[in-house]
C-alpha cells in the first residue's frame, strides 16, 4: 500500500525538480565550471584545476587577502548588527502596547521600513546622511562633529550599521512581539503574586517564552546581514577605499568589474558553502531546542 503511494508522490514532485534544475542546478554547475578554468576574454578558457581555490584560501595571495578581508568585514558587520538589533528589538517589543487601537497603529509604523525596497533604503540614507545636503549629515556637522561617510571609514561603517538597524530592527521587534503575545495572562498574574520584579518577570517568563522566536530572529538577521549587498552598494559602493567592501560587493567587483570569472566563481562557491554551513548549524540548533521542548511536554 505504501509503495504505489510513494511513486505517485515522485511524479508530482517532478515539475519542481525541473524548475529547480533550471533555476539552481544549471547555474551552479556553470559556476563550478568557471571556477576550475581561467579566461583571457574572447571566450577562450583554460583548465586551471583547483588553482583558484588554493589561491582564495591562502591569505598571503592577492585574491586570498581580499577574500579574507571581506569575510572578516562581513562577520564583524553581522556581529555588530545582531548585538544592536536583538536587544533593541526586544526592548521595542516590550514597550509596544498590548491592546486597543494603539496596537494596529504601532504595527503599521513598525512594518513601514520593512516594506521599502532595499535599493530605496540605500538611496534614502545616501541622501539623508550626506554632509552637504542631507538632513542628518548636515545636522551632525552643524553640531561640530566632523562627519563624512564618503571620506571616513568609521563614519561609513556607522552609517551602514545605523541604516541596517533602522531597516531591520522592526522585524526582530515584531517577531518578539508575537512571542510575547502568546504568553497567557496567568503567568504575569502569578509573577505579581510571587512578588517578582520587572527584571525577574523578563528573565523568568518573557525571555524563556521568547526563546524560539528569538532564535528565528537571530537566524534571519544573521543570514540576511551576511549576504548584505544592495544597501551598502548604493550608499558607499564599498568605499571609502575597501572599508565597506563586503563579500558580495567584492564578488561583483571581481566578476563584473574585472571580469575575473574564474576567481569570482571560486569565491562565490566558497561564499555559498559558508552560508550553507551556517544555515545547517542554525537549523540543527533550532530543531534540537524543538525536540527538547517536545520531550519536556511528554510526561515521564
Amino acid at each position: 500500500m505504501e509503495k504505489p503511494l510513494n511513486n505517485r508522490a515522485w511524479l508530482l514532485v517532478a515539475p519542481v525538480f525541473l524548475i529547480v534544475a533550471f533555476s539552481a542546478i544549471v547555474p551552479i554547475m556553470t559556476v563550478v565550471n568557471y571556477s576550475v578554468q581561467d579566461t583571457f576574454g574572447n571566450n577562450q578558457f583554460f583548465w586551471n584545476g583547483l588553482g583558484w581555490f588554493q589561491e582564495l584560501l591562502d591569505p598571503t595571495t592577492e585574491l586570498g587577502g581580499r577574500f579574507f578581508d571581506a569575510l572578516w568585514r562581513n562577520l564583524l558587520f553581522s556581529a555588530i548588527i545582531l548585538a544592536i538589533e536583538v536587544p533593541l528589538g526586544i526592548l521595542v517589543a516590550l514597550s509596544m502596547p498590548r491592546e486597543g487601537w494603539k496596537v494596529a497603529a504601532t504595527l503599521v509604523v513598525m512594518a513601514l521600513p520593512l516594506l521599502i525596497p532595499w535599493n530605496v533604503v540605500g538611496t534614502i540614507w545616501q541622501v539623508f546622511a550626506r554632509a552637504d545636503i542631507g538632513l542628518a549629515g548636515w545636522a551632525i556637522n552643524a553640531l561640530g562633529i566632523d562627519y563624512n561617510y564618503t571620506g571616513d571609514s568609521l563614519a561609513a561603517w556607522i552609517t551602514i550599521v545605523v541604516m541596517d538597524v533602522w531597516h531591520w530592527t522592526s522585524l526582530v521587534a515584531l517577531l518578539c512581539y508575537a512571542g510575547l503575545k502568546s504568553i497567557p495572562d496567568a503567568y504575569y498574574q502569578a509573577a505579581r503574586i510571587d512578588g517578582a520584579s520587572r527584571w525577574a518577570v523578563f528573565t523568568t517568563i518573557q525571555l524563556p517564552k521568547m526563546k524560539r522566536v528569538l532564535l528565528i530572529a537571530v537566524l534571519l538577521r544573521f543570514m540576511d546581514s551576511f549576504m548584505i549587498y544592495t544597501e551598502p552598494f548604493v550608499l558607499t559602493g564599498g568605499g571609502p577605499g575597501n572599508a565597506t567592501t563586503f563579500l558580495s560587493i567584492d564578488l561583483v567587483k571581481l566578476a563584473l568589474g574585472q571580469f575575473d570569472l574564474g576567481k569570482a566563481a571560486a569565491m562565490s562557491l566558497v561564499y555559498n558553502l559558508i552560508v550553507l554551513a551556517l544555515c545547517w548549524v542554525f537549523y540543527t540548533v533550532m530543531t534540537n531546542t524543538g525536540a527538547e521542548r517536545q520531550q519536556g511536554e511528554t510526561p515521564a
Binding site: 497567557p184 496567568a186 502569578a190
Partner: peptide, 18 residues
C-alpha cells in the same frame, strides 16, 4: 495584587519553565 498577601492557583498550571 502584590500588596495583598494572597496566592493563587490558576486553571492552567503556571510554572517557571527554566
Amino acid at each position: 495584587t502584590e500588596a495583598r498577601n494572597i496566592a493563587q492557583v490558576f486553571q492552567f498550571p503556571v510554572v517557571y519553565d527554566t
